[in-house]
Write a protein that binds this DNA or RNA. Sequence first.
DNA 1: ACGTCTTCCTGGGCGC
DNA 2: TGCGCCCAGGAAGACG
Length: 297
Amino acid sequence: MPELPEVETVRRSLVPRLTGRVVIGATLHRRDIAVMPGDPEGGFSRQRSGVRTTARRVRAPAVLVRAHLVEPRRHGKQLALVAEDGRAIVVHLGMTGQLRWAAKGARIDPADHIHATWRLDDGSRLVFRDPRRFGGLWLLPEAGMLEARWAELGPDGLRTPPAELAAGLRARLLGTRRAIKAALLDQRVVAGVGNIYADEALHEAGVHPQRLADGLAGAEVDRLAGAVSGVLTRAVEARGSTLRDYADAEGRRGEAQLVHRVYGRSGQACLACGAALETAQVAQRTTVWCPACQPAG
DNA sequence: ACGTCTTCCTGGGCGC
DNA sequence: TGCGCCCAGGAAGACG
């Protein structure tokens, strides 16, 4: 379940493999995994179109073909393969998406949920694999489109200094009566937080997940911003959380799951106070918290 | 306009 | 052991 730390770890593992390379070809094995601006059949619109495209091989739009790649970029959970002229492909990993790098001559089985393949000038390949297909590719054929897309997201949870993150949170939580956890999961509020790190940050900040967002005191928002920042930073240092599938572009697993304090620990003792952790659905997500450290209301 | 719910998808785990 | 059910969750769009 790639959230910001997992996506950042993938990005870092791609830097030495992609930077300075030239894309010499690309194949979309599934048409419906990619979307271009103004394309009514692609991307998530497939969910409503009722159209079932089978796994026929279709030439990808030549968005990055012949492009010279610069360092891949990231905002929140979105990763971008970027050309030096500003064209880009945004990769969203969804739940089970992976970007994997394959050395020259390495075997790739397209039947193994491989939806896109890029061939590079050194003979290596980059593949997008996603069994559950919650992820997708956004093809951005003009410079500036990436920045426009990312302008719709909130501040990046890792890069933004905690004080600035706190200021942004205060502004974006004001006047919204959603549960604070629902707000944290909203990528327009802060980009990069998903279900795991939302629970971890709320626990670290001592804030109950069902508190109303606009009911938090200023000091609580400050603690929350610091907790988001700290939780994400430490998870990146541990190379992300591997619960089942997640791996970086080289196939390496992460170790942040070893330091989760609440996620996946329902009924177990709080590591801070020993109380039994509680669980409920909040914002349609399984949520775990400590009733003593995170008092309601 | 805002908040909540449904929907998309597959594979692993569990109970009977 | 085998089958069927349930669950994991990011985010768009429908719904109230």
